[in-house]
Design a protein around this nucleic acid. Structure first.
Lengths: 154, 154
DNA sequence: GGCTATAGTTCTAAAATAGAACTGTCAAAC
DNA sequence: GTTTGACAGTTCTATTTTAGAACTATAGCC
């Protein structure tokens, strides 16, 4: 497949995969949500090769997920900060974390606990219907072709 | 990185990425949720090479996300069906689709619309806190080390 | 026997990644 | 004023993965 044109496909999943669908990008985003912002910090916490880190950060900036913000003029240094578009990836990351907690856990229990500051409790993320607020299950969803597509293929 | 031991990391995201963190696997899962079940059907709708499709299906079966169910005895033929563990990936897929709809759309509108059978309406998926039911935002979440980890690194 | 359908496996070429070394800028230390 | 170290990359070669196409195997149908 030509991954460089994946974002032109008539499928929102393909378009998302085009920008955040690889292992390193997802791990880099995890670090971003944990407030990591600098090249050396990403590199040492992920043990990613510098080459790939450089590539991935550039791509994330190009796709508007990170902003490259100067924090020092001499020498020129930048840090990478999530844009709103990047922050909106949070449900994806949380959904993956929650699935890992549920299905890939070991006997020691989950690695991280999440506290919702608004209500003060430890929580799990739950995906609900925007209209009725009920939790969503695959079998309760029916798919229609939308205006951006002739027939339902994905 | 040694991706084959990623699922042993003290991070639920890494463990999830270990099994569903690559482009083809995510696209295969999309097809699964659209009721695709057979080798040839995956292959022709995704244009994935037969070799990779075979590899990915084996891996998904090994990880308990798909079951390989015989549907013909002579010749032996199997189809691939989501287990409960696989069905539980739905929020991840939906979160990715929704992000794509929101941030990667084009002028024609979204490719697919989703109808919630329970309430009959077209909806968007929303991620909420299991405790208070409010929509989740990255900045409202605080991370603690859980029993499966000594210090919070991811 | 020859054709088709299905579900793979095998092969080589091309692309991506790993791993390590190198570059350039500047500040602070000696 | 030379050296050291931090930071943010770039460049290089070796290995691994993926793409693309051809091939294998089983069985039903004509």
């Amino acid at each position: 497949m030509k991954w460089d044109t994946l974002d032109e496909e008539q499928c929102s999943l393909s378009r998302t995969i085009a920008v955040v669908g690889d292992r390193w990008t997802l791990l880099i985003l995890r670090e971003c949500f944990l407030r990591v912002r600098r090249f050396e910090a990403f590199q040492s916490s992920l043990q990613i090769t510098r080459h790939l880190l450089s590539e991935r950060l550039k791509k994330l900036v190009r796709s508007g997920i990170l902003r490259r913000v100067p924090y020092s003029d001499a020498p020129k240094r930048y840090e990478y900060i999530l844009t709103q578009k990047g922050l909106d990836l949070y449900p994806i990351i949380m959904a993956m974390v929650h699935w890992g907690d549920t299905h890939m856990g070991d006997e020691r229990g989950r690695p991280l606990l999440h506290e919702h500051k608004s209500c003060g409790k430890l929580f799990d993320p739950v995906m609900v219907c925007s209209e009725c607020g009920e939790p969503l299950h695959a079998k309760q969803v029916h798919v229609h072709a939308g205006p951006g597509r002739k027939e339902a293929v994905g």
